[in-house]
Structure formats: structure tokens, C-alpha cells
Computed example of a mutant assay.
Amino acid sequence: MSTEIVQLVEQAGPYVTAALGSYGGAVLVRAQDAAVDGTANVGRRVLRAVWQRLGGRDRDALEQAVQDAADDPQDADAGGALRQQIKRALREDAELMRELAALLPAVPAGSVTITASGERSIAAQTIGTAITGDHGTAANAPEAGGTAANAPMAGGTPANAPVTDRTPADGTPADGPEAK
């Protein structure tokens, strides 16, 4: 398979995903929606261009792949099947490849594409401190003067913090009143 096809399908991926999220399975037949962001509309145009070039069984296969991917966006197999349908169409139609390349924004040479997908996911080319969850804190993060070694763990207490005082807030020694 041509490297150019693989790169084009990878470049189109985020646009197609946005289109499926915005338009659902109707992405192939719905008109462009001004209320939908530009990314989703580019993805809709990519899918429609492929769909319009296909006929018969190939068109039916693409429609089914689009529906499956729209029904379960977290299903990697459904997304892979859709990408495979797009690759097949591109291998068979060199003009379609030029058309899709013209629809997609130009990628600067040496650029990096980073995609985060899923609940609470994060992505970056480089990450200093990343904290996710409901009770995260950056108080001991290196950027705040702390170190990764004493960053809070679950429960909010540094995992290796020195124990300097075991006296509860009420003043009673931890080992009982007679421990004084």
C-alpha cells in the first residue's frame, strides 16, 4: 500500500471522527450544517467525496462502515473498518486521492499530530506534570517547587512524606492519653 494513502487516511482521521460525532450515521446524506464546526464539516466532505465515487457493493460497504463507526465511536475495529474502506477507494482512484488532499489543510513539513481520545485523556508532544481525576493537586509538582517523589498520591498524602507528628488535631497523642 502506498505510503501517501496511509498518510492521507491518517491526516483525515480526526476530521472523519469529528464528522461522525456531529452528524452520526447520516453524515453521507446530510447537507453541511453551519452550526457544526469546521473540522466536522471537512470530515463530512471527505466521506461524501469517497462515497460519491463508489458504486454498488463498495458504496454499501462504506455506508455500513460509517454506520458502525458512528454507532460505537469507541470501537477500534469499527474505526479500522472505515479506514480500510477509505484506503480501498483511494487505491482504486488516483483522482480521489488528489481531491481529498485538496480538502484537507496542508500539513507543514516536520509537524506532529497528537490526538487524545476517551474520558479524561490527555495528549501532548511533551508533558511536564499531568494530573487527572477528581482529587488531583499540583501543590507538590516540580513546577510548584515540589518533586515528583513527594507528589500526593490517592488520599492527598505524599507517599514518602516523613512522619514528624502523630498527634491528632484534638491534642491527644496517637498512642492514647497515657503515652505522654
Results as ranks from 00 to 15, higher is better:
6 V>Y: 06
9 V>S: 05
10 E>M: 09
12 A>E: 07
12 A>F: 04
14 P>G: 09
17 T>V: 12
18 A>K: 10
18 A>V: 08
19 A>S: 14
19 A>H: 08
21 G>E: 12
23 Y>N: 10
23 Y>M: 03
24 G>D: 02
25 G>A: 14
26 A>Y: 05
27 V>M: 09
27 V>E: 12
28 L>K: 11
31 A>I: 02
31 A>R: 15
34 A>G: 07
34 A>T: 14
36 V>C: 06
37 D>F: 07
37 D>E: 12
40 A>P: 12
41 N>W: 04
41 N>K: 10
42 V>F: 03
44 R>S: 11
45 R>L: 15
47 L>S: 03
49 A>S: 15
51 W>P: 01
53 R>T: 13
54 L>F: 01
58 D>I: 02
59 R>D: 09
60 D>C: 01
63 E>D: 14
64 Q>D: 13
66 V>F: 05
67 Q>A: 14
70 A>S: 14
70 A>Y: 02
72 D>T: 13
73 P>F: 08
73 P>S: 11
75 D>V: 03
78 A>V: 09
81 A>I: 07
82 L>G: 10
83 R>P: 00
83 R>D: 14
85 Q>M: 06
87 K>G: 13
89 A>G: 10
90 L>M: 12
91 R>A: 07
92 E>Y: 03
92 E>G: 14
94 A>S: 15
94 A>T: 14
99 E>S: 12
107 V>M: 11
108 P>T: 09
109 A>I: 05
112 V>S: 12
117 S>R: 09
121 S>E: 00
122 I>D: 00
124 A>I: 03
125 Q>I: 05
126 T>S: 14
126 T>K: 08
128 G>A: 14
131 I>W: 00
133 G>Q: 01
134 D>G: 10
136 G>M: 01
136 G>A: 05
137 T>M: 05
138 A>R: 09
140 N>F: 14
141 A>V: 04
142 P>A: 11
145 G>H: 08
145 G>S: 08
146 G>H: 05
151 A>D: 04
152 P>N: 11
155 G>P: 02
155 G>N: 04
158 P>D: 13
159 A>K: 13
161 A>H: 01
161 A>F: 03
165 D>H: 02
165 D>N: 15
171 G>Y: 01
174 A>N: 10
175 D>T: 06
176 G>A: 03
176 G>F: 04
176 G>Q: 02
176 G>M: 02
179 A>P: 01
180 K>T: 10
